[in-house]
């Protein structure tokens, strides 16, 4: 009974998400030229990150013991994962503003889960730019790299991208939930989303061990790409962890989403009992 109800709510949420996202797409399509320009600009501008890496490699041959194609592989996987979550719920940091100006209330009187409505807020197709750009770099890496492919490794790549997207998505949700208590703290989540993706682009060997431990055991961003990607590349993980951790991203993603759901519910409950 409770299970069918939960499933019903999830379906309701997805449906509401689709409805609202399509309204935002229509809104942007009302200004077609400006959409085309920003989409193209977004695609090009997100590429600057990779240009910076190319420039680094114009001076050196390796970074932290990793070659350019290997780093491109990390860049592509982190970029696509992040891009997916950014596309699906990239405007969740606006929640604080909605609480402050009171427009969250208008979402609460609609017959749909609030999380879905907030996630769909300002849905923008221009965010496809980042995913495309990440896929291109990933494609380049896969072409150039000499990987000893096995079935497991081949399967691990798409699994990694989707689980990574889910892990970043969970971070977005937790960050939004946090704003129920601290409306102005939207920037904190940038540390873990944008900061996370910046970090995951480079190999873990570059960073201090404590930092690597932090993103492995505390905020499990290492499961986005480091652990599975290093397995695919046939590189040892700098921490002493069992190798099977490389196959756990889906489980970690599920756990993260569960925790994020709880955080969200606690946040929403707090809003509805304090009125912020």
């Amino acid at each position: 009974m409770a299970e069918t109800e939960a499933r019903g709510r999830t379906l309701d949420g997805i449906r509401a998400y689709g409805l609202i996202a399509s309204m935002w797409v229509r809104s942007t399509m009302a200004y077609r030229a400006s959409f085309a320009m920003t989409a193209l600009g977004n695609f090009a501008a997100t590429g600057f990150d990779f240009v910076a890496i190319l420039m680094m490699f114009s001076h050196v041959d390796s970074l932290g013991g990793y070659s350019l194609p290997e780093i491109a592989f990390l860049y592509g996987t982190a970029g696509v994962s992040f891009g997916l979550s950014d596309l699906v719920m990239g405007s969740m940091d606006r929640l604080g503003r909605r609480i402050r100006d009171g427009t969250l209330d208008t979402l609460l009187v609609r017959p749909a889960p609030v999380l879905a409505q907030v996630a769909a807020d300002r849905f923008a197709l221009r965010r496809l730019g980042r995913i495309t750009q990440g896929l291109l770099v990933l494609g380049y890496a896969l072409l150039v790299l000499d990987i000893d492919w096995t079935v497991v490794k081949v399967l691990l790549v798409p699994v990694m991208l989707l689980s990574g997207g889910a892990i970043f998505g969970a971070v977005f949700v937790v960050g939004a939930a946090f704003q129920f208590w601290a409306q102005d703290a939207s920037e904190v989540q940038n540390s873990f989303t944008y900061g996370g993706v910046t970090m995951l682009v480079y190999p873990p060997t570059v960073f201090a061990k404590d930092l690597v431990r932090g993103v492995t055991f505390v905020i499990p961003l290492a499961f986005v790409n480091w652990l599975p990607a290093l397995y695919v590349l046939g590189r040892p993980y700098p921490l002493d962890v069992p190798q099977w951790l490389a196959f756990t991203p889906p489980l970690v993603a599920a756990a993260c989403m569960g925790l994020a759901g709880l955080a969200w519910r606690a946040g929403l409950r707090s809003y509805r009992s304090t009125g912020s």
Partner: peptide, 14 residues
């Protein structure tokens, strides 16, 4: 959400 189906709300300034 069940109630939302049965009520209408107009916020004057939003």
């Amino acid at each position: 959400t069940k109630l939302a189906q049965r009520i209408g709300v107009v916020f004057g300034q939003r």
